[in-house]
């Protein structure tokens, strides 16, 4: 899976940028700190934080392993430290600073996990993951009492399950929240249960994502026009990381404007500036 590299004044800021680029939530990514921010005198920032992140391969361990998981947790998070610490010390030359950086908790950095060397088993056939996803969704729509058709589009390891039928609004929910939860559960049922690490699985219900994307695209173009005409930056309303990604993607294609995200979820928003 592809890594993206980002920078920011703090590790949190760099992480936010990465999440936007990847269009996922923080617990869906692996994050590695490449460089801690260096503080200059009087709180001036001398060097930016640099991290790399990727969408986390879905995780599963065989059941036997899972039971042992608890005892292993502590040693496991330690395992990744030596390499990390060395890298930081080489760069910052100040071990107490890197220790300080490491103890930062409460932020995004605590989600950092060791690279997954301990993947077990053979790769899972993406077609099987797709089948499991479709059968989960079919069971779910019929449990809801809806008549719907469930289809799978597969492009190698990219899987998209689409559900269409009448009255599916209940499965989309306000602002797509139920749809997001359903997608989460499809991933657990199909990817994690089968031990799949490689597929990208998305769910769309009643063309919600398709429509949402189209309206976000139109919105992004509107904002870009406004920014170009006025020459002044515009901050849009807070939105989810997936939505922000759509905006960034569209705005990146438009000359004369640039975009970045600012603020903390759930108030994180896209800022569009003239270039």
């Amino acid at each position: 899976m592809e890594w993206v590299e980002t920078t920011g004044k703090t590790i949190e800021e760099a992480t936010e940028q990465a999440l936007d680029r990847l269009g996922v939530d923080v617990d869906e990514v692996d994050i590695e700190v490449l460089e801690e921010p260096k503080n200059g005198l009087f709180g001036k920032t001398r060097g930016e934080a640099r991290i790399r992140a990727r969408v986390k391969p879905a995780e599963v361990r065989p059941k036997v392993d899972r039971r042992r998981g608890r005892d292993r947790k502590a040693p496991r998070s330690n395992e990744a430290k030596p390499a990390d610490d060395n890298a930081q010390q080489e760069k910052s030359g100040a071990s107490e600073r890197s220790a300080g950086g490491r103890s930062r908790s409460g932020g995004r950095s605590q989600d950092r996990r060791p690279p997954r060397e301990e993947r077990s088993g053979d790769p899972v056939d993406p077609a099987l993951v797709g089948e499991a996803a479709v059968s989960f969704m079919e069971g779910l729509t019929s449990a809801f009492g809806f008549e719907a058709t469930v289809e799978l589009q597969r492009d190698d390891t990219d899987l998209e399950v689409t559900v269409n039928g009448a009255e599916l609004g209940l499965m989309v929910g306000h602002g797509g929240r139920t749809l997001v939860a359903i997608q989460d559960l499809v991933r657990v049922a199909a990817q994690r249960r089968l031990g799949d690490h490689d597929t990208h699985l998305r769910v769309d219900i009643a063309k919600y994502r398709e429509r949402r994307r189209a309206s976000l695209e139109a919105f992004a173009k509107q904002i870009a026009e406004r920014v170009k005409e006025s020459g002044r930056p515009v901050a849009v309303d807070p939105m989810s990381s997936a939505d922000r990604k759509v905006l960034h993607d569209v705005l990146a294609e438009i000359d004369g404007v640039s975009s970045r995200s600012e603020g903390e979820d759930p108030d994180r928003r896209v800022l569009v500036s003239p270039e």
Partner: peptide, 8 residues
């Protein structure tokens, strides 16, 4: 996962 199950 529990939160997603509750939502749905």
């Amino acid at each position: 996962t529990a939160a997603s199950i509750r939502t749905v």
